[in-house]
Design a protein around this nucleic acid. Sequence first.
DNA 1: TCTGGGGTCCTAGGACCC
DNA 2: TCTGGGGTCCTAGGACCC
Length: 446
Amino acid sequence: MSNSVSSGPSVLDAPVAHVDLDAFFASVEILDDPSLLGKAVAVGGGGERGVVASASYEARRYGVRSAMPSVIARRLCPDLIILPGRFDRYEEYSRRFHAIIRDLTPEYEPVGLDEVFADLRSLRRLQVDPIEASRELRQRVADELSLRCGVGIGRNKLFAKLASRRAKPRVENGQLVEGPGVLWVSPALEAQWLNELEVRALWGVGPATAAKLDQLGLRYVRDLARVSEADLVHRFGTALGTMLAAYAQGEDPRGVVSDRVNKSVGHEETFASSLSSRDELNAVVERHADVVARALRAQGLVARTVTLIVRFDDLTSVSRSQTLAFGLDDEGAVSAVAQALLTTVTLAGAVRLLGIHASSLGRRDDNQLQLSFGFEGLARDPRAEAIESSRSSQVANEALRDVVDEIRGRFGRHAVASARDLGERGVEVETQRGRHAFGPESTRER
DNA sequence: TCTGGGGTCCTAGGACCC
DNA sequence: TCTGGGGTCCTAGGACCC
């Protein structure tokens, strides 16, 4: 270990921190309902096909883990309380968490709702000790959110992430063991971890890649170091191969990216019991299109690509997608495209999941709803018809949707049952976008 | 033990343009 | 007549993250 300020790496030079909230969803539920305190609590799907998204430490003592099927979790812990999850609430906590991080540095990258990578280089310029700053951060999270978190500090994302995991409490022989809370990966620790770690611990190595590596006799990170980068690239492709080669040397070229923007919006549902009829599936498409379109509008976005995902009982999935020349944020438009895509899927078996995703996102203000031409020759093609149908729906409903969204935003989602109902008597509403009158004969007047 | 729902990124092939 | 190579976009599928 270095004992001179100038002679070696010190925590003052560590450029990356990873901050990870403990048992986030479950902790929020316990905060909102103190009667749950000290009990085995999980958030996730409670049904036959549900999985655990988050588990309290009390539940973890029984072996309950994230991503575990709820059926198994209940078997391990019969008293387990499984809650469905309130994501609006978690997002609220997440925003407050991010606000605290922002006081440390504006250069941070969220990973899901409960984790961030933070770029610490601005601290170095201010001669702030990252360990001290991290302790203060944990204190603020505890004081202001009543939540706990672990902080890992390292030379790059790889080590920062590995360290935050070890900074947190863990279950050992059914007992909860406290972690240090903040952990810096010194050069000595780096060397030790690279020697001891299994490849499965690396970011980007999941079950499939781990199994493939295992077949090659590569179970530990130190084994990877014996293989050439060219060999890894040949076997795992350019992206993964070069990453694995870098990780084996303790290198991680990924930087902290603080300005990520959403690239897709989607909604999917696994059914309690699988569906077989196209009518039922079309009804689900309409419901999902509603959710996706509303999410797009809430963010002021339109999507040029609509993707339909169908998963069958044997867990095989197929997807169909369609990219349009113009963007959509109308439920009727999204639904028309998705239903046309569904007609191209052969229903070989019962369907356990149906999803709709919207991508190729752009700002709504930039959307060009071009005039329709050139599709006449394809009029018998259901997908071409759907494009036309979605375009008219998009155009016709633009103003109407604004009104419905505004009413729902003000008075709740159930204030308006359906956009169609508005047309029966006729209404006139003042919105931020101007005054709109809707009569029984027209869908849009200005 | 049998696998959710929100996402991101990668790969490979084909179409199309220059 | 048979043929290039690079770039971009789209589609389908898969792996991975929390």
